[in-house]
Design a protein around this nucleic acid. Sequence first.
DNA 1: CGGGCCGGTTACAATGTGGTAACAAATCTT
DNA 2: AAGATTTGTTACCACATTGTAACCGGCCCG
Lengths: 231, 231
Amino acid sequence: MKILVVEDDLSLSDVLAFTLRRAGFDVVTAHDGLAALKAWQTANPNLVILDLNLPKLDGMSVCRQIRSQSDTPIIILTVRSGDEDVVKGLELGADDYVVKPFSPKQLVARVRAVLRRADATPATSTVLATAHLSLDRSRNEAMRPGSPPIRLTPLEARLLETLLLNAGHVLTAEALVDAVWGAEGGDRAMLKQLVYRLRSKIEPDPSQPFYIETVPGVGYALTDPDADFPG
Amino acid sequence: MKILVVEDDLSLSDVLAFTLRRAGFDVVTAHDGLAALKAWQTANPNLVILDLNLPKLDGMSVCRQIRSQSDTPIIILTVRSGDEDVVKGLELGADDYVVKPFSPKQLVARVRAVLRRADATPATSTVLATAHLSLDRSRNEAMRPGSPPIRLTPLEARLLETLLLNAGHVLTAEALVDAVWGAEGGDRAMLKQLVYRLRSKIEPDPSQPFYIETVPGVGYALTDPDADFPG
DNA sequence: CGGGCCGGTTACAATGTGGTAACAAATCTT
DNA sequence: AAGATTTGTTACCACATTGTAACCGGCCCG
């Protein structure tokens, strides 16, 4: 996975590059808008992290340019908080945004969430599975051995996918909301709702969940017989 | 939990160390930038509290250095308020900052908040244990060999976590209250209550506690068969 | 011997959280 | 355009969690 980081503050750019590399990504950097576009064309990254105020060509324009030619996921980096800049960035087609200051962990989490969402879309023959349960991501169907496939709605499928990708681990409500709805929209109450709907489809006895475990005050986890002992 | 305090003002440094130790942390101190880096490498702390103006190597550089090699949480300590220094520190990857002058309680609260945020995220081995008892912090479950897991409430889990982190050592009531409830809220009476509730869940015979020992007039301690014999 | 302090225990109220349900708005199908 | 599906919204209930107070018994100390 290759990430293009566009940030004019060199020290911050370094920190970002370091953090992302340590998280296992390839990183390319650019420090102004024009260089960003050039780098984007030559490096063809899977995701762009984009500061909004840049020399030579501002972030908005870069975002618009990239969006007009592809649907590479874009995460906007902005110091201004809580106002229309953010909204505008998202309107331009950005997939998420992070407001400075932010912690490295937070950024990596967002990057992962966006990438997961992005490559979940295409109808590749993605089948995720544990011993008990599998999900055909191209058809949005959940299957249990010996039972007919169950049709899921897109949101339900994304939720189950996220749980499946972390089978055996507890995911916080916040992480799940992020993974399913992204930065905008999404809410603990809606997650509750969605979990309920998913359970009522895949749990043989919804009143006593077998697959989706609740961890009160924390979140949910998918039961995995092959749960990995720490390593 | 080990904390590295980097502060050149010796009297302040002493106060910090004392405060943090009383709150149940291990503390290592350094008084200039170079010593800080050295101490960081050898002590490998879970969190760094970092003054910005230091002799020999300034705080910014120390921060950048540490950040370039790990994501140990960093809290910046600064006397300058409300200007870009703080922002810059945060951009370098610090996780929080505290402006002097500050109250010890406030600092401890920030430290706890940052630590909680830091280790709430990953799927690291969130299992603490002694020979008799272990705690899965991600699920808030206590386990005794041969018995099914016991579900704990968030507060109970935090209490047990604190005890477990200092297994074999006596913790004062005050330290425990601080650890569980943070700077605000919390009360000796509530601790009594919480200890009772935790005991009734994990002690086979609550009337004769085996795990959680009471030290009258002082606090509580968790029994640890591997308590540190000197060496 | 009696009072007061301390910790354990019990009871209860206030609050929070998750599960369930019903309904409206938006979207997709046909 | 009509109907079905999906999603967002709200409300409600049951129960868990937490905070608060009171009570009891031992123990120290005068």
